[in-house]
Amino acid sequence: MSAPLLSVRDLCVDYVTENGPVRAVDTVDLDLSPGEILGIAGESGCGKSTLAQALLRTLPPPAVIARGRVTFEGRDVLAMSEPELRGMRWRRMSMVFQSAMDALNPVTTIGEQLADTILAHEPVSGTEARRRAGALLERVGIPAERLGSYAHQLSGGMRQRVGIALALALEPALVILDEPTTALDVIVEREILAHIRTLQRTLGFAVIYITHDLARMLQFSDRVAIFYAARLVEVGPAATIATAPRHPYTRGLLRAFPRVHAEAGAAESIPGTPPSLRTPPPGCRFHPRCPIAVEACRRERPALLEVGPGHLAACPVAR
């Protein structure tokens, strides 16, 4: 593997509450190569969006980064000052937000919102910024005449395309997609993902794709990381995870999605519910729902161990 674009070590994020801290991201290690698509999957509330915000250092209070190191393009993100962060944000690392409806300012035109992004980072004239904003819109498949439109005048799919145009405005090295298609219907979702794929191939940026839709993610990503209750339980190449998952949680997740060619009723859910991060179970957090748990799972936190080429899993029991 070449030098990683992004490397996360031992990262912990806490939500400080009156009853003490709640750990939403628990000792996470991750690496990302330039131009790679990494999928991050997990149930709602497992900490995957928190992780994304921690990378850009836009965590809203009361969330705080408790510990760890984030290195991006060789620089320590957690040690950056506010002006240094402003320089890194968007220029090198940008993000597409979950809900396109809420991510655009309702009272200014999308053209202004694209142009102010460019103007904040580059010493260009207003006309030039506007011309580039038009080119960006064209790039995501929206005619440049729509620059003067407001968010409410666009369809959900178009709004999300504007969100993508915004994220690509300064040609960053890394784009984080935080559930970019949850608010859209399946057809528009497929179109948009295909479009991102094409843009990614031409522009060569790396992608962190966060979703709870495992099937969609396996098609879209090069590599996949599975989260469960604030911890990473499995990381590996998408093809390996799809065909030979190791962790019982990943296996359960894959069984929970119906396959097109399987008989009706083949989808199974994982029994039980995800634990509360306020009072997580000791040992392996998945053990109360795990079909193969042994006594040791209740006591010791399993380490992420290499089980194949580039394939790590946090389960010493599964074979």
Partner: peptide, 10 residues
């Protein structure tokens, strides 16, 4: 979200 995005945009 749009204020967060504005901040994240730098």
């Amino acid at each position: 979200d749009y204020v967060n995005l504005a901040r994240a945009k730098g």
